[in-house]
Each structure stands twice: as structure tokens, then as C-alpha cells.
Design a protein around this nucleic acid. Structure first.
Lengths: 345, 345
DNA sequence: TTGTAAGCGTTATCAA
DNA sequence: TTGATAACGCTTACAA
């Protein structure tokens, strides 16, 4: 009914005390008389009082809000990380301000400035690129931050990094050990840090096993089912037309891309793994349900989220300035999308 | 370097004007002298000024923040809706405060109060239950809101409702038309509005076609792959043991649950749709990739998100108090998880 | 034990 | 065209 919001002044009036006494009572200040306190708390309840967090934040120059900045909120990897973060935040009575940078540095910058403007206590960010000026922006403004999916080489920056290079190595190695040597890499956009790390691991596996990767077998595409489907179809067409870009297996940065190739395969009446082998990365919830179940390198999503937010909270509470760095090792989950080729190894 | 935040006072000092002139200049107030304005804006840029949105919000009693309260941030349906909302918000320079209620009314209440405390401009909420006190809480506090997934019968409440009852009807009807009459309903938690609507549609289809649903073929479970898998396994065991709870087809509230039955089916060496038919709801991104591709009722996620946020923004801008109500009709997406049974129809 | 007053960074009114 | 001032609701010295 009453459209006016209840403030400590209203409570003060109703309780017949000053508003600063109310303030103290609401904070359980032991200096306040037991009885007055009870009364104040009772009245606050009756009036359905809730504090104005903007005023509180302005006064304290600090809010109980955490900013989260990712590149694709639709990607199940981030959904799971977000869920994990939210759970912890909820226990701490923190809230989450969520932004999507959509792989654009400019948007990312805007998002960071928003976080700054809103005086968030800290941010968790999976940046577009670990070398962009945006990370400097974060550092310069003393914005507490934990980075995901990259290893920024910047003083005082903390990150929890799921080793993408290792993931690619593991995936590629597994294919090589199964006898594949023409391995198509379906990577993410080349500006993306994760994609850069992933490429390194792919190349490392090749050189480790004394193999030479073919230039035309390395593709940068959008991280999506549509992206995977479309590149596979054009590549398959090339293959039929000219016999070029031949591959027996695929490694990809994302299970989503892998799912695109599943879709294309069905449309082209191709069999996995008989016609081509594929190994994904992320191990999203549906990968095991596919037919054949997708072999994938697991991205420990919940652990990453929880570790990241805990690191950030530590950074916020203890005002230690030393940066912390955690590397999480991904693990191969063998399922049925890779075929052993006999003529090698 | 400078750890102190830049405010309009700093700019004022640097520009040799009063801070209130700076305030006006930053708002492009035409009363301000062209030259002073230019100078102020230049200096603001040089100092990397960004406004304190807490102060602004406090002063204006209104922020450019929208609250989003859902029950499971991991569910791809909500990820897609969130993405859609975020895109529009981003264009409007609004930001999103995101909470997960985890199907608990108490948590939901806390989340609503948080939104109130933070003076959000409005919220989008998929509530635990459309009859809970929480909706009254929203109404009483004049919190602008758009509801999802339910049709609250409360004066002045707006919602955009994807017709769950119709979805269940469509799904069940399709099964019936294909000759099934022992149809297992794998529904969500019974306190959940969506689940209640869904049940209605299921029952309506039965009565429409003169069939009687079996009580023991209606199950409330968690909306997850694990939930679907586990109920299917216990039900299948029952079936083998006693011959009871027999069914030839399944309707379910969520493709996630359907995926659980796919998983169980593989583990039990059962074939879909030969051994049982199944039809899901939501049509999430991976449903078409499954084998067999899952027949599902489509939940128009992006449309719902965009419609909802646009309605909310309208409500915020025009201070019209009339509630608006939009119903979105879901559509059946026929794929290959339903078998036609010959002996009926 | 309670109350007064200042200040957080804006916006907006009014006076100069 | 510019500046002084008050107010938003809260926290926190400090005074009573």
C-alpha cells in the first residue's frame, strides 16, 4: 500500500529514538540497550524495512556485488560456472552482476567500466584476449579480479586457468596414438586467448610425436553448433571435389563445435567414428548422451567457478596484494567417437 | 596509479569551475558554455572519469539495473533467455543482476528483497510458485515485474507465458495419435507452477481423447538428466519385476529429463523409439543432435526473453500501470523418438 | 546508552 | 552562464 520506502528514519520515528540509534541497533551494536534494540528490530520487521544498498555502498565505497564478465552466456560451460559462483555468492549474501562481452574487446571494456561504476567488490572475467588493454584498465583501477581461461602476464593479476594448452595436447595426442595423423583442428576465433592456447597444445603434440601439421587443417570458427556444422560441410565438399584437406580425425576447442559435426555427419550420412573420429573439449552435460558418446577433454567447470570465486573473496577480505595463480589440469574422458586406425603405431 | 577514484569534484578543480557546472556539462546541458563544456569533457576523458552509479542511483531513486530471478541457471532454457535479455539490456546500457532461487520460495524471497534493496528498475522472474506470498511482496513494493512460466492471477501483474499446458497437451496428444495410451509423465517438482500447468495439459489430452491416465504413471522428479535417468531405471526395474507401471511412451516437462532416459536406455540396452517412445519439452540446443533426434515441444526461448524484457522496459518508461499479458504458443517439433503403434487409431 | 553531524558522489533547485 | 546548497539513505566519529 504505502508506496514510500521505509528508511531508518521512519523506524526511528516509530520507535521514538534517533535514526542513528536505529542504525546501530540494526547492526547489533552491543552498545545499544537490549530493550531498545528488540523494539527497533520488531518495528523494522513490522514496517517491512530493508536497507538501501545503494546508500550503504556509497557510504562504504564498497558493495557486496561481484561482477561476472563472460563471452557467451549461452555456452553451457559458462552456465555451469555461473551456477557454481552463484551458489557461493548466495551463501555470502553477495549478488552477481552479469555481463556478456560477446567476444568484443570494446564491449568488454564497457562492461568493466560498468563494474567500476557500480563499485563492485571484484570481478570474475574470462577475457576476450589476455593481452588487451582491458586488463590494464582493471589493474589501473585497482579492481580486484580473477581471470579465467587465460594466463595474463601482468603484475598482481590472479587467475584460475584450466590448462587449454594441455587439453589440446591431450586430445591431439590421443588421436595420434590411435593412428591419426591428418587431424583437423576446429579452433575458436583467433583473437581469443583460449583459442591461442589451444592451438599451442595442438602444435606441441604434433612436434612431440614428430609429425607435421598441415596448414589447411587448422580452422578458426565460431564456437557454436552452427559453426561446426558449416565448416565441416564445406570441408567435406572440398574433400570430395578435389581430394584436398583430407583428414581422418578432428580436435576441437568446444563440444559445441563437435556437436555441429555430428549434425553434419547425419546430414551427409557419415558415421562416427567409422568415417571420421572426433574429440571435443569441455565435456558439457550432453556430450555423453550423444551417439556415439563424445570423447572429450573435461573442463572442470564447477571447480573452476568455485575456486575462482573463493580466490576473489579472499582477495576482497584479506587485503593481501599478492596475486595468486591456480592451474587446473583437464582430463581426457574416453568415450566412443574415436576410431583406432591400425596402420600406424 | 592514482588509487583514488575520480569524481566530478576532481574534474571541477582541474577545469577551474564548480562541480555543479561539471555535472551539467557531463549531461550536455545546453545552458553550459560551449567552450567550458568541451574543456570539461576533455578533462573528464583525460582523468578517465566514470560516474559513480551508486550515488546516481541513490539520488535518482532508480538505477539502470534489471533483476533476473530464475530457478536453475544451469538449465539451457534459462541460459538462452538470459542471453536474449542481456543483448537488449546491453543496447540500453542497462545491466543485469542475476539470482538463482533453486526452486526454494525462501531463497526467492531473499532474492526479491535484494532486488528491492538495490533499487533495480524492474525484474524478470520465473517464480517457484505463482501462488506464493512472494508475488504479493513484489506487488506491495511496487516492484515492476514481468513473470515468466506462469499466469499469476494478481491485479497489475504482467507476464509472458509460454503455454505449458498447451505444450503438454500437444505432446500427449501426439503420443495418443500415434497409438500410445500408457503414457508416463515425468513432471517437475509438484510445487512448481510450470509443473502444475504441464500436468493439466497432460490430463486434458487424456480426457479429450476419452482415455484415463494411470496414477502410477505420473511422477514428479528433479528437472535434470540425473533425475530422468534414475526414475527411468527404477520404473524399468518395477516393470520387469512385477509387470506393473507399464508404459509405451513418455512425456516430460524437460528435454533434460528426456536425456536422462536416453542415458538409461543405453545402459539398459533399450532402443528408442522401438522399446519406448519419448517426447520432450523445451527443444534445447542439443535435442536435435541426439540419436534418435528427440521429438520435442519447442519453448521459444529467445522470443520469450526479448518479449519479457521489452515489456518490462515499457513498464519502466511509460509509467502505465495497466498490466500486460502475453501468451506464447509452443509448437511441436517432430523428430524420431516417437514410434507409431499400429493397434490403435 | 543515545543523539548530532558530517560525508559518500550525484542531481537539481535556486540564486547570483 | 555559473555556483552554492540541499537531498538521496546510510555509517561512524564524536558529543552529550
Amino acid at each position: 500500500m504505502s508506496s514510500k520506502k521505509v528508511t531508518i528514519k521512519h523506524i526511528a520515528q516509530a520507535a521514538g529514538v534517533s535514526f542513528s540509534t536505529v542504525g546501530k541497533a540494526l547492526h547489533n551494536d552491543p552498545l545499544v540497550n537490549k530493550e531498545t534494540m528488540k523494539k527497533i528490530i520488531r518495528i523494522a520487521g513490522e514496517l517491512n524495512y530493508y536497507p538501501n544498498l545503494l546508500a550503504k555502498g556509497l557510504r562504504n565505497k564498497k558493495t557486496e556485488t561481484i561482477g561476472v564478465i563472460f563471452n557467451d552466456l549461452k555456452n553451457p560451460v559458462y552456465s555451469e560456472i555461473i551456477k557454481a559462483i552463484e551458489e557461493i555468492l548466495n551463501n555470502l549474501n553477495f549478488t552477481m552482476l552479469l555481463c556478456d562481452s560477446n567476444f568484443q574487446e570494446k564491449l568488454e571494456k564497457k562492461n568493466i567500466v560498468t563494474m567500476l561504476s557500480k563499485d563492485v567488490a571484484g570481478i570474475i572475467i574470462s577475457p576476450v584476449n589476455e593481452k588487451s588493454e582491458n586488463i590494464q584498465l582493471i589493474a589501473e583501477n585497482n579492481l580486484k579480479a580473477v581471470f579465467l581461461d587465460c594466463t595474463p602476464d601482468y603484475p598482481g593479476i590472479s587467475y584460475v586457468y584450466v590448462n587449454h594448452e594441455r587439453a589440446a595436447f591431450l586430445a591431439t595426442e590421443y588421436l595420434i596414438k590411435n593412428g591419426h595423423k591428418n587431424i583437423l583442428l576446429l579452433n575458436g576465433p583467433c583473437g581469443l586467448s583460449s583459442a591461442q592456447h589451444f592451438l599451442k597444445g595442438y602444435l606441441k603434440a604434433f612436434s612431440f610425436y614428430g609429425l607435421i601439421p598441415a596448414d589447411n587443417l587448422i580452422k578458426s570458427i565460431n564456437i557454436s553448433i552452427a559453426g561446426g556444422r558449416s565448416i565441416f560441410k564445406t570441408l567435406y565438399k572440398c574433400k570430395k571435389d578435389s581430394g584436398r584437406t583430407d583428414f581422418t580425425a578432428i580436435v576441437t576447442l568446444s563440444d559445441l563445435i563437435a556437436m555441429g559435426t555430428y549434425k553434419a555427419a547425419r546430414e551427409l550420412s557419415l558415421k562416427i567414428p567409422e568415417d571420421f573420429s572426433i574429440i571435443g573439449y569441455d565435456n558439457i552435460f550432453c556430450s555423453e548422451i550423444l551417439d556415439p558418446p563424445l570423447t572429450s577433454v573435461n573442463y572442470p567447470k564447477t571447480i573452476t567457478g568455485k575456486t575462482g570465486i573463493n580466490m576473489l573473496i579472499d582477495q576482497i577480505n584479506n587485503r593481501e596484494n599478492k596475486s595468486k595463480t591456480i592451474i587446473i589440469e583437464p582430463g581426457l574422458v574416453k568415450r566412443d567417437s574415436v576410431k583406432k586406425i591400425i596402420d600406424r603405431f
